[in-house]
């Protein structure tokens, strides 16, 4: 009997762990995106010399982060509020629209990696495409909080 209870609590524990904390998970992804963008923005603006390795590393990070955004898992019902989330209720009002925006981000980061920019001009094009996703998604799907 004790074993059964232990087993059940173990299962219950893993189940909770799987959902862990979607809010902090999605925030960690966004932080990592910010870091990656920062590392190449000076290059994209021509303020730092072009460095293909650095550029690829950043684009790969962005792409890996983007592919991690599983809307169902990271934005489940019940994660509208809590912690210091700045996710807008519009995400849940318009799941299809949000999914579309996430899919676009995924596609744009993947194609930036495939393009493997070899010059500043190539980078500018890819950087511009990827960076546009930030504001277009934050325009409707995030709210600023104090």
């Amino acid at each position: 009997m004790r074993r059964l209870i232990l087993a059940i609590s173990a299962v219950a524990l893993t189940a909770t762990a799987a959902l862990a904390d979607p809010i902090s998970e999605r925030q960690a992804i966004m932080k990592s995106n910010g870091k990656a963008l920062k590392s190449i923005s000076a290059i994209a603006k021509g303020e730092q010399p072009f460095d293909a390795d650095k550029v690829m590393a950043a684009l790969k990070t962005l792409n890996e982060d983007a592919q991690k955004i599983d809307v169902e898992k990271l934005f489940p019902d019940g994660s509208q509020t809590g912690g210091d989330t700045t996710a807008s209720p519009k995400i849940w009002d318009d799941m299809a629209g949000f999914q579309k925006a996430v899919d676009k981000f995924k596609a744009d980061t993947a194609s930036a990696v495939t393009a493997s920019p070899a010059s500043l001009d190539d980078l500018k094009v890819e950087f511009g495409k990827v960076a546009k996703n930030c504001s277009s998604c934050h325009e409707g799907f995030r709210i600023k909080k104090g």
Partner: peptide
Amino acid sequence: TGFTPDFDSVGGTMVE
């Protein structure tokens, strides 16, 4: 560019 010094991005009505 719409990016803050920490590379958060512009959002909401400020995007326009």
